[in-house]
Amino acid sequence: LRLKGEPFAVLDIEEIYEINPEEVATRTFGTPENNPEVVKVPFDKKHPGWVIYRSMNPIILAGKYTIINEPKLRPPFDRFWYPPRKAREEFDKRGWRTVINHQTRNVPHVGHEMLMKTAAFTGDVEPCHGILVNAIIGVKRRGDYPDEAIVEGHEMVHLAGYIKPERHMVSICLWDMRYGNPLESILHGIIRQNMGCTHHMFGRDHAAVGEYYDMYATQILWTKGIPSFGFPKPVNEVPYGLQIKPQNMKEFWYCPRCGEIAYSDCCNHAKEKQKFSGSFVRGMVAEGVFPPKVIFRPEVYKVIVKWWKKFGYPFCNEEYVKKKEEELEVDLPHMEI
């Protein structure tokens, strides 16, 4: 196996079989007819993950692989790279017995910060010792924040003291999102459990794009199960299920009546709420307008500006996406075979 033209790993082929890509896509993402609990509308070519699965090579090679030429992460990603063993060692070093994961694909606004702070109050006999931000780094869509701004924006949350550095840690996950909502959340749970996390927060529209799924599809899976997807009980309650525990969260908004960031299940002023809209914040950033402090921490905004100056635009554009797909986040040493 090669990566960027260099030898990367050896695959010991144990099995070769053929699949029907259309059937795999249908069973993975679901249909309104087969999975009425959570699928709202049929998938189409606007859904990137569904298209990827339908376009897969039908010939599958399976077996064990051995990495022979380990990739080296480029700055700034190198300091956020924590494979499972390294992550567990870091948790032990910090004395974290319970750790809750926060998955993200965005630069954090104050709503994200409040989600982390509030979800971390779960645990066992005390709140979770640590909050692990595990940012999804991979193929980007035009209009997304650059990966560099995402990881350094989250790092700034603790560098600026909004969450204590002793309780907050930023890492990356090299994964191209499939936007498979409930079933993809199982993969996310496996990854974070392997890293040593004891809890995983799931918000509205987890791993979702568009309006294909119920906005709380992932939470339905982790609290009730989805029989049509083969889970009569929650993921962590079925035989051989995951051990990581879900912390399902709803919405945070700014309430002018309460004068604070409020949680939807606590605040009774829904008609007056001011939602944290990612598109609204992006609109302000694109116009060069400094978002209000109640929405965006100024230190985090400065991280966006830093990478804006480097790339010439605050969001991913054609040039960034093309360069990203060509160069990736890694370098491999030259190896002769």
Rank of each mutant, 00 (worst) to 15 (best):
P7G: 13
P7L: 13
L11V: 13
E15Y: 02
I16W: 00
Y17G: 12
I19C: 10
I19K: 04
N20P: 06
E22V: 10
T28F: 15
E33W: 06
K40D: 05
K40R: 15
P42V: 12
K46W: 11
W50N: 14
S55H: 03
I59C: 08
A62L: 06
P71L: 09
K72G: 00
F77Y: 14
D78T: 05
K86E: 14
D92F: 03
W96Y: 12
T98S: 15
H109Y: 00
V110T: 02
M114F: 10
A120N: 13
F121K: 13
I131R: 09
L132S: 12
R142L: 14
G143W: 02
D147S: 15
A149H: 01
M156W: 03
G161F: 04
I163K: 01
K164T: 12
V170P: 04
V170Q: 03
N181P: 07
I190M: 12
R192A: 11
H199C: 03
A207I: 01
Y213M: 05
Y216K: 15
K224E: 11
G225K: 06
I226T: 05
G230C: 08
N236L: 02
N236P: 00
K245P: 00
Y254P: 01
C255H: 02
R257H: 08
R257P: 01
I261N: 10
A262R: 06
C266L: 15
Q274Y: 05
F280D: 14
F280C: 00
G283S: 12
V289K: 15
K293D: 12
V294Y: 09
P298G: 10
E299V: 09
G312V: 09
G312Y: 11
F315E: 03
N317C: 05
K323F: 01
K323M: 12
E325R: 08
E326H: 07
L332G: 04
P333V: 05
